Amino acid sequence: MITYHTLTPNSPLWSQATTQIGDIDWPAGPHLAKRMQTPAVWQPFERVIYATTGEQLAGFCALLAEDIVPDTPYSPFVSSVYVAPDYRHQGISLRLVQQAERAAQVTDITGLYIVTRHVGLYEHLNYALVDRREDQFGRLNRVLYKDFT
């Protein structure tokens, strides 16, 4: 059974999540883990959604003020959506995003952006294309938005 944890820097699982997220082979994991090692930079609404089976990482995403597309008027973002290989194709990525949405709504955020090159995945959750922008690596991405109002 997968358990979803909504973490802040003060959460008891923060250190465990930081280590496990930093150990994955996708560069966004170590990048997020490095940011997690500096709790002072976290804004009050920012969170990590950490999915586990027991103590094993099943997936994660983050609710962040900024993502990999620099100099945009957009904020906040669902960022770094990741599902471990053994847990893929079970709808976990969508549940992670839904958990991030709930965390955002609790803090009175009225909509979220997602930067992605995937087509069709987040549209299942009513995200719509609002822009196309290059990320910090020069890759063209789609910027999606979902309004909660």
Rank of each mutant, 00 (worst) to 15 (best):
M1D: 00
I2G: 01
T3Y: 01
T3V: 13
Y4M: 10
T8N: 09
P9M: 00
N10K: 14
N10W: 00
P12M: 01
P12S: 10
W14D: 09
W14I: 06
A17D: 02
T18C: 09
T18P: 01
T19Y: 00
Q20F: 02
G22Q: 10
G22S: 09
D23R: 13
D25Y: 05
D25G: 12
D25V: 11
D25E: 13
W26P: 01
W26V: 15
W26F: 12
P27M: 00
P27T: 08
G29H: 09
P30M: 03
H31A: 15
H31S: 14
A33G: 06
A33T: 09
A33W: 07
A33Q: 12
A33E: 10
A33R: 09
K34R: 15
K34F: 04
R35P: 00
R35S: 12
T38A: 13
P39F: 07
V41L: 12
V41K: 12
V41D: 13
V41N: 12
Q43S: 13
E46D: 04
R47Q: 08
A51R: 10
T52C: 07
G54F: 11
G54A: 05
E55P: 00
L57D: 05
A58P: 03
A58C: 13
G59H: 06
G59V: 08
F60Q: 02
F60C: 13
C61G: 06
A62Q: 12
L63A: 01
A65D: 10
E66M: 00
V69T: 15
P70L: 08
D71C: 07
T72Y: 00
P73T: 08
P73Q: 11
Y74M: 07
S75V: 03
S75W: 10
S75E: 09
P76C: 04
S79Q: 11
S79I: 01
S79H: 15
V83Y: 02
V83C: 11
V83N: 02
A84R: 08
A84N: 09
A84W: 02
P85V: 11
D86G: 13
Y87E: 08
R88H: 06
H89C: 03
H89V: 13
H89S: 13
Q90P: 02
I92M: 14
L96M: 12
V97W: 07
V97S: 08
Q99E: 15
Q99C: 15
A100G: 03
A100R: 10
R102C: 06
R102Q: 15
A104S: 06
Q105M: 15
V106A: 15
V106C: 06
D108A: 14
D108F: 10
I109W: 12
I109C: 07
T110L: 14
T110N: 14
L112E: 03
L112C: 10
L112F: 06
Y113E: 04
T116V: 11
T116E: 07
R117F: 06
V119G: 05
G120A: 10
G120N: 11
L121A: 08
Y122E: 04
E123C: 06
L125F: 09
N126V: 03
A128I: 07
L129R: 11
L129N: 03
R132Y: 06
R133P: 02
E134L: 14
E134K: 15
D135T: 05
F137W: 15
R139V: 09
R139L: 08
N141R: 11
N141I: 00
R142Q: 14
V143K: 01
L144I: 06
L144G: 05
L144M: 05
L144F: 05
L144A: 03
K146T: 05
K146D: 00
K146L: 02
D147I: 06
F148P: 04
T149G: 14
T149Y: 09
